[in-house]
């Protein structure tokens, strides 16, 4: 029987693949690597591309990853896949956006105060209305 290894492909959002395989190909930083069972321990970046798994049954499955990290131990291979496209500039832009949202939220005080004011006014007029109704009922009797 051919030698096998356990392969896990996981992303932060879900487990993508888990099973026994005879071979795995991944787009590593320094070029595509093929990992067979009993490979030396290896830790490397992945570039966006296709991860192919040859399962024990001889079936070939492929998954697209947009980057991530590949961890290899002699009988366990783990692909920590990124679901998002990561690049320093893109992350930076996303961070700036989050800050801008916070600033916008704080600057938008006016709207919130108006809302709170309106709520208080509504409650007051509703109370007045109720009092008037009660007075009317009393007057009827």
């Amino acid at each position: 029987m051919a030698m096998t290894m356990h392969v896990d492909i996981v992303s932060a959002e879900k487990a993508i693949f888990s099973g026994t395989a005879t071979m795995l190909f991944a787009p590593a930083e320094m070029g595509e690597v093929g990992i067979a069972p009993r490979h030396a321990p290896l830790l490397t970046w992945l570039k966006p591309g296709e991860v192919r798994v040859l399962t024990q049954e001889g079936e070939e499955r492929s998954y697209f990853v947009s980057g991530g990290i590949l961890e290899v131990q002699p009988h366990v291979v783990t692909v920590l896949a990124d679901t998002a496209v990561r690049a320093r500039d893109l992350d930076e832009a996303a961070a700036l956006e989050a800050i801008a949202r916070a600033e916008h939220m704080l600057a938008d005080k006016q709207a919130d105060i108006d809302y709170a004011k309106a709520q208080v006014e509504l409650a007051q007029s509703a109370a007045q209305l109720r009092t008037i109704q009660k007075l009317r009922e009393k007057a009827k009797r």
Partner: peptide, 29 residues
């Protein structure tokens, strides 16, 4: 917003199936 406090970043409306993309920027701050 009502209580006050030094807010540096926010993320809202992530929905029922949030994706990590929407959080990356906020966490990076």
């Amino acid at each position: 917003k009502r209580l006050g406090g030094n807010v540096v970043a926010t993320a809202t409306h992530l929905g029922d199936a949030p994706s990590i993309n929407e959080l990356i920027g906020t966490i990076k701050v």
